[in-house]
Nucleic acid binder design. Structure first.
Lengths: 157, 157
DNA sequence: GATTGCTGGTAGCATGTTGCAACTAGGAGG
DNA sequence: CCTCCTAGTTGCAACATGCTACCAGCAATC
């Protein structure tokens, strides 16, 4: 690329999200954070990523407000990377990717990791896209509109 | 990179998903497909992506079973790219990214596109991660386990 | 308190990937 | 038949990624 084509000025939220976290490692770093990783070395060993890449990604994720740097919890002079609320809000994204991968990228019976409810040990329910009244919504039931100026309340009912 | 670090043999479904669709353009192509794009030129104009990149991405997405190539619906001799069921299953991923982007990547009142229920014109409900009994689940309520050999029924359930 | 080891990074280099532009091949329309 | 449109492919330049080596600060040990 002459310049990786910035998408951060697109008016599509998907494009901006992809621009922020749409590279190979960022989502996996976030996934590891959900899984308990906090220290540079934890991410590095868990992901097997080169340290310069990890350092660059963490810097970008901190700059994007997804992680924040805090003093280490164990009293040492090191620092840790913890998810901000914005970062924690990526949980549905990770779960969606995980469920899609479980369904379509593994043969039945193939070993894989699984995200389960800590209380029951059972897998989570499949994510369900719903209208605001709870009806299940499929791709064809939706339409993309352009909101030129956010109106305080929905205009069409 | 010496070689973009394949993740397709990871035992984590998130990693495999990211390996398949985790580049800058694939998810946006899928998003456009949900939005009605079917032809090469439609994707190209809508995304502003270089044609060689688009061609490579579409090829990869077809190879991954996310798109399939079909004869054009308008009777012309050209072909079209339509989502397979596997591709349509990415809907929650797109919705999750869209909702995250709407929440965190736009200032209030900033113009943006929005995905709404075709029937009511109202935005969709926020995605909710739930346990299999319907309880809302947050990141801390979950744990990642390793499934070495898929058992036909849950063992601790 | 100097040395050794660990943690957390940076620097240099080779290579892969992206992107732009130019070019090509076949279909559509007049 | 000539021209434009669609759907790509190819070549080159720039940037990103990955590996390895290197470096700085903390920690524990002697």
């Amino acid at each position: 690329m002459v310049k990786r084509t910035r998408l951060d000025d697109s008016d599509c939220p998907v494009a901006r999200s992809v621009d922020t976290i749409g590279d190979w490692w960022s989502l996996l770093i976030v996934r590891d954070a959900f899984d308990g990783s906090r220290r540079f070395g934890q991410f590095q060993r868990s992901l097997g990523v080169a340290k310069n890449i990890l350092a660059a990604r963490l810097r970008a994720l901190v700059a994007a407000g997804i992680f924040e740097v805090v003093p280490a919890a164990d009293g040492s002079a090191y620092q840790e990377y913890v998810l901000t609320p914005k970062g924690r809000d990526l949980f549905p994204v990770i779960v969606a990717l995980r469920q899609w991968g479980e369904t379509h990228s593994f043969t039945p019976g193939e070993p894989h990791s699984r995200l389960v409810d800590r209380l029951t040990g059972r897998p989570l329910a499949p994510l369900r896209v719903e209208a605001d009244d709870g009806r299940a919504v499929e791709p064809g039931d939706t339409v993309v509109i352009k909101v030129d100026r956010e109106s305080p309340r929905a205009k069409s009912g």
